[in-house]
Design a protein around this nucleic acid. Sequence first.
RNA 1: CGGGAUGUAGCGCAGUCUGGUAGCGCGCCACGUUCGGGAUGUGGAGGUCGUGGGUUCGAAUCCCGCCAUCCCGACCA
Length: 499
Amino acid sequence: MSDKKGLPKRSENYSEWYNELVRKADLAENSPVRGCMVIKPYGYAIWEKMQQQLDKMFKDTGHTNAYFPLFVPKSFLEKEEGHAEGFAKECAVVTHYRLKADPNKKGALIADPDSKLEEELIVRPTSEAVIWHTYRSWIQSYRDLPILVNQWANVVRWEMRTRLFLRTAEFLWQEGHTAHASAEEAKAETKQMLDVYAEFVEQYMAVPVIKGTKTANERFAGADDTLCIEALMQDGKALQAGTSHFLGQNFAKAFDVKFLNKQNQQEYVWGTSWGVSTRLMGALIMAHSDDNGLVLPPKLAPIQVVIVPIYKTEEQLNNLTETIQTIQKELKAKGISVKFDDRDSLTPGFKFADWELRGVPVRLALGERDLANGTIEVSRRDKERGEEGAKTVESIAGIADKIEALLADIQVNIYQKAHNFREANISKVDSYEEFKKVLNEKGGFILAHWDGTSETEQKIKEETKATIRCIPLEMPEEAGVCMLTGKPSKQRVVFAVAY
RNA sequence: CGGGAUGUAGCGCAGUCUGGUAGCGCGCCACGUUCGGGAUGUGGAGGUCGUGGGUUCGAAUCCCGCCAUCCCGACCA
């Protein structure tokens, strides 16, 4: 037993635990380019599962995929004022299209001064600008609407401080961009996609979220309204898991996108955009994992069941292999992904720890003893080592049905644990003193009254680092007074320190 | 962009003060013994000491410049 191979404890250093976990579970690593990451095969497999499910949900709600270019002419970005201001400080800019040998230094390359671009190209920080420019030529009549398009892409935002998955300079995401003939329809779309995100995060990632509206301060640059889902991490900090924006007619006006309505009148198009990114990976990791490693919900685990044979001789392995392959076949028939870990030269103990680290929901261990008894050892990852029910011995007969049920149970249990944690970490406070105290000692979501002004929000942020995560959609109205200014308030809002 | 620190084997580090054959742990390769919770022994491979210059008989070590990275702040849907 050496703890050199173990993770730091969450309780001792949460952020170091996170960093090490991402690395040790083979999810991602830092790249030679500052702020950018290499997503490793195992991490990418999880992202692919997320993509597949989300993509299905988008298509089920009538959307289709398309692809727009990586580069945005600078002039496009200038068109929507709020949008330009919001992103200008973090853009990668392409100025040249050719390299040449450096005359002053052998073997070195420089940007060829003769290849300077007439107009600089911006690596997209988001695609509203290119897409609305394109929509201009796609839309003439109300008959061309709505346009319901999504794209899977990478974007670049030159962040000062980055962390694997949570904030990287380049990240993968999807961005939906829709165009509608009326404000009502666009608003309904905005809400619909928020609901899709919430369903995905809760049902598949097993992470409970609060749906809400962003305050003006936190709103997307160029939107009239931003809806979001907010999740709570195990260290008491909030993570914005997805956003859906009602763009009003802002981009239509900036890019002159009009349509002729049924009354034969020109009208500006109404827009929405919505996105989730590889940051969801961060949410998934932080919401469920423990000091032994990753804990993955079965619905998103690339490997749902791993089988570890326990043997001494090659002959013993051969005896086990037959039974294991039968079990493997039965599980696969049920659509369960199974890995038979027959790596020689690694001890069972090492494999147990290794698969725990990688978050595989169910582990089966089979040895000679089991074979003689017709049994198999079943371990569930959602319970900690030694916890009641973490490990059981089951009969091999009918094992596939049991595992299928177990996977479903794990999915529910993981959600329930995260939900219980969040409920235990939502506090209602009525004074600023209490607010600061709870924030310091406990963290989590804090429900408090706020007078609705940006000044108050700003002041609280400066003094406590907590921001208004959202004005919740599904919480009863309640009269009260702002905890800072004492002015009247009709509803509590959600405060938290955020990632 | 301010403050602090660090660049030595794939990874983590010692060696630098006081210049003199480049080391340790993990990992890797081979073979043996192991194998029901992170095994172990023996042998082996692997290094432009970030980079450019200077001082010196001799530089990882001293001096100057540059580059890069990390941490704290500022910044951040």
